[in-house]
Every structure is written in structure tokens, then in C-alpha cells.
């Protein structure tokens, strides 16, 4: 099905806004992950640039519906990286304090993740099941803050942090097992 592409070609303005309604969150958090510490205005500019890029290039796109999400994610990533290069400002890291505390507590036991294949790591994360997999993806892939993940999953922030901590421990154990 090429429902999105058809809409983009037939009624581009409304289609691009509908795309924004459907996948705005994905693009927003993908951009924010790259531009962590940059002003909100930069992030939103980059997000709108991503959708405007799709609007301008609609005639060159030929995507099945199930490919549009990955395409938007990839475009957002590239726009964000370009923006970072263009602006060339030094970001001030604004890591979530609760997760920072958790990260430092774990640092002594850091695993040599780079020695494992990325595919194994991703498989292990996905195998954690919900909501733990979602929490780790939201935090470490998308770059969401603890409060935001809590709101997304309708949980208390403390619950998110403790689940993340347990999930990381479980992930470590799984990966150690795979390594040995």
C-alpha cells in the first residue's frame, strides 16, 4: 500500500500535516536525541524541516506505507546531524538527573558492549518485553527523559527509574551469558 505517497502527491499540504500528526513524536524525539542540550527552538526547527523536506521531495518519494516511519526517522536523523554541523554550537548536556545517578552507579560494572554485535544487543533489549524494552529504547535510543517516559507509559517516575535499573541489570546478565 502506498497510501501516504498517494496523499502526498494529491494533496501535499494536508498530507504533510497528517504525517506530522501521525509520526511527529517519532521525528521529534529522534531529533532531540541528536540535539540534546540544544535550545528547544533548534529542535522544533529541525523537526519542521524534516516534514518540509518530505513536502518538497514528495515527487521523488516512492515508499510503501510500512516504510514511511523508518524513512522519517532516517531523514530526521540526517537533518539533525546537518543542523548540528551547521550551527556548530557546543551543547550543554542536560541528562536526566535520575538516570545520571543510575548510570554512575552502574559504571563500575560496565560491559564491553562494543565487543558484542549490535544485533545481539538489540535482540536482547527487545526480548525484555514491555514495558522494560520500551523504557530502555525511549531512554537510550530516543533520548527521552524519565518524566516523559513516565507520562508516556502512565507510570510514576520512580517506577520508571527502578524498572530501568532492573532492566539494565537483566540485560547485563543476558549479555554476560551470551559472552561466556
Amino acid at each position: 500500500m502506498k497510501h501516504w505517497i498517494t496523499r502526498l502527491r494529491n494533496d501535499p499540504e494536508r498530507a504533510v500535516h497528517a504525517l506530522m500528526d501521525a509520526h511527529g513524536g517519532l521525528v521529534y524525539y529522534t531529533v532531540r536525541r541528536v540535539l540534546a542540550g540544544y535550545p528547544e527552538d533548534d529542535i522544533e526547527e529541525c523537526v519542521s524541516d524534516t516534514f518540509f523536506y518530505v513536502y518538497r521531495n514528495r515527487d521523488r518519494l516512492d515508499l510503501e506505507d510500512d516504510a514511511i516511519k523508518a524513512y522519517l526517522g532516517k531523514t530526521a536523523l540526517h537533518r539533525a546531524i546537518d543542523h548540528k554541523r551547521k550551527v556548530a554550537r557546543i551543547p550543554t548536556p542536560t541528562e536526566d538527573a535520575l538516570f545520571d545517578a543510575d548510570a554512575s552507579a552502574q559504571s563500575a560494572e560496565e560491559l564491553a558492549v562494543s565487543e558484542l554485535t549490535r544485533g545481539e544487543l538489540i535482540e536482547s533489549i527487545l526480548a525484555l518485553g514491555d514495558p522494560d524494552a520500551t523504557i530502555l529504547i525511549a531512554k537510550y535510543f530516543i533520548g527521552m527523559k524519565g518524566k516523559e517516559i513516565a507520562a508516556l507509559l502512565h507510570m510514576k517516575e520512580n517506577t520508571v527509574v527502578s524498572r530501568a535499573s532492573r532492566a539494565l541489570k537483566q540485560l547485563r546478565n543476558t549479555l554476560k551469558g551470551a559472552e561466556s
Partner: peptide, 8 residues
């Protein structure tokens, strides 16, 4: 990863 995560 994105299939699992739906931030919309």
C-alpha cells in the same frame, strides 16, 4: 526499535 516504541 521504533516498531516497539510509539512516542506519538
Amino acid at each position: 526499535l521504533m516498531d516497539r516504541f510509539d512516542p506519538e
